[in-house]
Every structure is written in C-alpha cells, then in structure tokens.
Design a protein around this nucleic acid. Sequence first.
DNA 1: CCGAATCCGTAAAGATACTG
DNA 2: CAGTATCTTTACGGATTCGG
Lengths: 126, 126
Amino acid sequence: MKRSTIQDSMFPGCPVRNILARLCDKWALLVIYILDRSGKENMRFMELKQQMPDISQRMLSMTLRTLEEDGYITRTIFSEIPPRVEYALTERAKSLKPILDSLLQWSFEHMDDIMSDRKKTVSVND
Amino acid sequence: MKRSTIQDSMFPGCPVRNILARLCDKWALLVIYILDRSGKENMRFMELKQQMPDISQRMLSMTLRTLEEDGYITRTIFSEIPPRVEYALTERAKSLKPILDSLLQWSFEHMDDIMSDRKKTVSVND
DNA sequence: CCGAATCCGTAAAGATACTG
DNA sequence: CAGTATCTTTACGGATTCGG
C-alpha cells in the first residue's frame, strides 16, 4: 500500500494530519467500527469480510496491516490448515472511541446540510 | 479534483466516513487550522499560500473549493484589479472545532507511540 | 499582477483476478 | 482461508496560460 506520510516544511510529519489521514481512508474506520460493535474479543479475516460486502480482499488485507502498524489492532496468526488469523482492537483503538462517537454524532447532525450543500455546487450540469 | 464519494452497500454514503475523508486529505485541515488561528475574520488566497510554503497553487485552490462546497468556508470575490478573494470560516467549521480539538489532543497524546510503532514494522529494510 | 484554469506527468489508492 | 499479482483510477505536483 505504501501509506505515504503527509509532509510539509511548516509542520514536518504533522502527527495530527498523519494520524487522521491514515484513519480516514476508505475502510479503516469501518473496520474499527465492526470490530468494536461485534461484541467479540476478536474476529477472523473472513468474518470481517462478511460484514463488509463491498471491500476487496486486497483492501481488507492492506487496511488491517496498516491498522496493525499503527497499533490499533493486533494480528494473531495460528499455524493451522486452513490458516487462521484473528484480529482484535487494542486499548489505543478503544481510547479513540469516545472521540469517534462525538464525531459520529456531529456528522449525523450536519449530514443533511453538508450533502445538500455539495449538490448545489456539484450538479451544475448533471 | 473529483473528490469522489465513499460508497458501500452496508452504509450507503456513510456520512461519518464521507465527511472525515474529505476533511482528512492532505491539506484541508491545515487550511482550517490556519484560518482559525490567524485571528483575522478572513484571509486572502496569497496570505494562505504564504502560510503554507509547500502547497501548490493548484492544490490550495482545489482544497478551498472543496471546503466551500461542504460549507466550511465562505468565498468572497471582489471585482477589482488585481482581483481579491477572501476566505472565512463558517459557523459549521467553528462548530467542528471542539471535536477537532479533542482529536488533536488525542493525536498529541498518542503520536509518539504511533510513530514508533510504525517504524518497528516499516523500517525492516530502510 | 492575483487567483485561478488547463495540460501533463507521477505515484499512491483502490478494484479485479489469481495463488499457496 | 487468507492473502498476493496485475491492472485501473484518482490524488497530487509542476509548468504554463488566462481573464480581470
């Protein structure tokens, strides 16, 4: 995936934007959300995939690796046949939850306004 | 720019991920941050550019349009020569501030851990 | 001159198809 | 089952041009 780092000379490697950029890609937040609300302690690759019908296996795989790199999930490999890999949220991910919840609530309060604002400017010719 | 919408069948047009994905691109948060801490009521294009030495004019222009589309900033054009365009945060952007601040604080508390976690896995050969 | 729009190139993100 | 190899699309940067 590469997951390149956001860089500029004013805030070299600005942690805020770098952390957020990697969390706010297409799938990462959804993976965290699904792991969280599953109630289970951990989930397997295919379990996650079933909860996300539209994600490709490749993107699920890469998203999980990135989340692991950043310490939001753990990845436990069982050397069995067929292979088994289990994913679980870390404390770091759980500590993010209250903030994500407040963002979620803000989004719900503003989503209609924002989406209709977007249409105003986008659909000049549509 | 295209700024395509995040879509999946489970949460069609999920507002949280869509709102966050557009805010967490390479430059948007920095623009909001600079407008906010400037203290001024509004800023001109070149003023913003000077605060962001690494952004291209193209990306600044596009970022500002997207932020305007989503109602986070206003764009006021003065028909003068040379032309003048002023940008200001809206109430919507300001209402986001407390949440962004808590995210910022969380990022600062965790940045060292996250960045060192990343290095562990990334710099296998570097 | 300021604030873009446009064209073009690169690299990263992401989808489709295949494998140990 | 849990990924990788290959291909397409999008984001982003640089240079140039343009209308006021």
